[in-house]
């Protein structure tokens, strides 16, 4: 029995791609030997961001767009917790766009799963930052008038150390990517195509199956230029897999004055005497 399974009512639409992501995450965590109290699953707000309610682990369902700063805080407080951020494309690249940019720069050691359904689900179908130009939505009846963000290319350009793309229905690959992300020391982004059966009439299950391909067997994920080239590829040849992975010192490793989690230092009011001498 997988200890991350939770018997709880679920508010996702029947047939939603989120179910497969939840299952893959639960399986990957368990197979990696992580216990529920060692994991901290954190989100913003949206359909995807409801996931922390549906997993038996430490969880945090915060505010729209704000999962990453909260996750940075939790990680800095106690890096012994495995941090998994799980949120929508609107949540991550729209409301939380600025945080996304800076968390890539920081290279905080956490796994970030973006449920990229290319539409705003919870608020009923408006365009998201990843909706294609010209695509008609419940709000944009004449089609989207802005260019979409390419999240993986953006992450690469910012210096991300782990960038992957997945599709929720390639369950086995998704699980393996999640495991790789969990084991990556630093910020690991997996942008997961996730069909929204209620509101995205273009990017359907069928569409994703027809328009995604595996990376070549001899693909070198440490080659940034190659990664950028592949990241740019569009339908019908959107590549799935680890586009790029390198190891660099992560955020907390650069806090060289800390040899343990900050919450583990014994602290007394008298400690300020260390500083008071500078005020004589």
């Amino acid at each position: 029995m997988n200890p991350f399974k939770k018997d709880v009512a679920n508010a996702w639409c029947p047939g939603c791609g989120n179910f497969a992501i939840l299952n893959a995450l639960q399986a990957a965590l368990h197979e990696e030997g992580i216990a529920p109290h060692e994991a901290f699953v954190m989100s913003g707000i949206g359909q995807a961001a409801k996931l922390p309610h549906y997993i038996r682990a430490n969880a945090y369902n915060g505010l729209h767009g704000r999962a990453l700063p909260a996750a940075m805080g939790a990680h800095a407080a106690n890096p012994n917790l495995k941090i998994i951020v799980t949120s929508g494309d609107g949540d991550t690249y729209g409301e939380g766009g600025n945080h996304f940019l800076h968390h890539v720069r920081r290279n905080v050691d956490m796994l970030h799963l973006v449920h990229d359904n290319q539409v705003y689900g919870l608020t009923k179908g408006q365009g998201s930052p990843t909706t294609a130009m010209g695509q008609i939505t419940t709000l944009q009846q004449d089609g989207m008038k802005s260019l979409p963000v390419n999240p993986v290319l953006l992450a690469l350009s910012l210096g991300a150390t782990f960038v992957a793309r997945a599709y929720s229905q390639n369950i086995e690959q998704l699980k393996e990517l999640i495991k790789a992300g969990l084991n990556h020391p630093g910020y690991a982004l997996i942008d997961i195509f996730q069909p929204c059966v209620s509101f995205n009439k273009v990017n359907t299950y069928r569409w994703y199956s027809d328009n995604t391909v595996a990376l070549p067997e001899d693909y070198d994920p440490t080659n940034l230029e190659l990664a950028m080239e592949y990241a740019k590829r569009e339908a019908p040849e959107i590549p799935l897999g680890i586009l790029y992975q390198v190891t660099q010192p992560h955020f907390l490793q650069k806090q060289t004055h800390l040899d343990r989690p900050i919450i583990e230092y014994d602290r007394q009011p008298e400690d300020i005497k260390r500083l008071l001498e500078n005020h004589r």
Binding site: R66, G73, A76
Partner: peptide, 18 residues
């Protein structure tokens, strides 16, 4: 990166015991 992040990050830190 901004005050929103600053204020949100302290809630996350507090949720992990800081």
């Amino acid at each position: 990166e901004d005050e929103i992040a600053a204020a949100i990050s302290i809630t996350g830190a507090a949720a992990a015991g800081a």
